[in-house]
Design a protein around this nucleic acid. Structure first.
Length: 399
DNA sequence: CCTCCACTGGAAACCTAGGCTC
DNA sequence: GAGCCTAGGTTTCCAGTGGAGG
């Protein structure tokens, strides 16, 4: 049987010529419909080739509008040019969401100016001082790109760190550092410290969502590289583009859709990606997203979700109080210390934010105010994901 | 109109696990 | 080893709050 699988794979030419091209972190040679933006970014940053600091830039736009790809592309070209001219400029890219905290963001910057910092243990201020020291020693210019800067600005120390970064040139006494901030959140400017905002947005570049035609162009461009000739049924690209355009023109989603559709077709042993495989891809992607987000939830969140599931069987809706009561008994049975009501409330809130459950705060007059909770995803997926933990398996129905 | 329920959600303190410097 | 620092999760405390029932 296994041999047969191998044989089939080897016999068919397959669908993908190079599937890496469809990954979201792949930076293609051509970025259709973003020529203007790339040009503008290049113009702003170009002065560093002459040893002059470029303006700080604030880039914003919805997810999947090409912000990261464009800046990375410009950085790459700039880096190449610097090497060609033997310039000692440093271009540093940090994703604030992935680094997670203000401290780790700073420590990434420190690394790029060749300063060693421990991954924990010293004050953020100290990391900043070490960066300053590193910068004074360095003779070239530094461009710091802070991707998903909104996540940094939102956390407590983040805005302080951001403020210090915008004043970094004053602190070292020379204009050496250019900051590029990238935000997915369009309202991000509102909660930013006005001093930071004015410094950061010396230049602003707005990325509009792609429409269906633009997405089609992007997909076509990549599909040329990614798939063999005639591997796509007529209309597949347009269909992917239309589906993604419906969801605020997210190119990342469109590419993912196309890739997964290809993988589905490949696994079936087909030589062609059909419209039907796109439909299946859409479903798979959504299910996988929920499955993963549940499976990786901390234990107590999963327990609460399990309680919500049990309380909402037969289409009933439940309340925080009911869920918490069941949760404490469940913890007793499992020999766990239950979290407090307050904490559980926050965790339930988080479950809502991730889209797994739906909550509505209702007032029942004499009977108090509470959340009315219902499930927001198919039971099947929920059960499958919770069963991934052997401890919970016994508490769930067969299917 | 007033009360009062069953919470919500902000704020701050506390705890743990890591690590630095002296 | 003492005395600091950090992040991140959790607890403690408490001031709200919308509206059914009196």
């Amino acid at each position: 049987m296994v041999d047969e699988v191998f044989e089939r794979l080897l016999r068919t030419r397959g669908i993908f010529k190079n599937r890496e091209v469809l990954r979201s972190d792949f930076i293609p040679e051509k970025l259709p419909h973003r020529e203007k933006e790339i040009r503008k970014l290049a113009e702003i940053l170009a002065p560093i080739l002459k040893g002059i600091r470029g303006s700080n830039i604030l880039i914003y736009g919805k997810p999947g509008t090409g912000k990261t790809a464009c800046i990375k592309k410009v950085i790459k070209k700039l880096q190449a040019k610097c090497e060609e001219l033997h310039l000692n400029n440093t271009l540093c890219y940090v994703n604030c969401r992935i680094s997670g905290t203000a401290y780790r963001t700073l420590s990434s910057i420190a690394t790029s100016v060749e300063v060693e910092v421990p991954f924990t243990g010293i004050a953020t201020g100290e990391v900043y001082n070490r960066i300053l020291r590193g910068l004074r020693k360095m003779d070239g210019m530094l461009v710091i790109t802070l991707d998903e800067i909104d996540t940094l600005a939102k956390n407590a120390n983040g805005d302080k760190v951001l403020y210090e970064l915008t004043r970094i040139n004053e602190n070292i006494g020379v204009g050496k550092v250019t900051l590029v901030g990238i935000s997915n959140d369009l309202t991000f400017k509102e909660y930013l410290d006005p001093r930071v905002l004015s410094s950061l947005s010396e230049e602003e570049v707005l990325f509009r969502p792609y429409n269906a035609e633009e997405l089609t162009d992007i997909l076509k461009e990549r599909a040329k590289e990614a798939f063999y000739k005639n591997a796509l049924e007529e209309g597949v690209i347009e269909y992917c583009a239309a589906l993604a355009a419906r969801e605020h023109g997210d190119a990342r989603r469109a590419l993912e859709l196309l890739r997964v559709a290809g993988e589905i077709a490949e696994r079936k042993g087909d030589n062609v990606v059909t419209l039907e495989s796109v439909d299946m891809a859409l479903k798979t992607i959504e299910e996988d997203r929920y499955f993963e987000s549940i499976r990786t939830l901390p234990l107590h969140s999963r327990l609460l979700l399990l309680c919500i599931f049990q309380k909402t069987q037969n289409n009933k809706r439940t309340t925080t109080g009911e869920v918490y009561q069941l949760y404490t008994t469940l913890c007793g049975e499992l020999g766990l210390d239950p979290l407090t009501h307050r904490r559980a409330s926050t965790l339930i809130n988080e479950l809502e934010v991730s889209g797994i459950i739906l909550c509505k705060i209702v007032s029942q007059g004499r009977y108090g105010r509470t959340r009315r909770i219902s499930l927001n995803i198919p039971k099947k997926i929920l059960i499958r994901a919770l069963k991934a933990d052997p401890h919970l398996e016994g508490m769930l129905p067969e299917n």
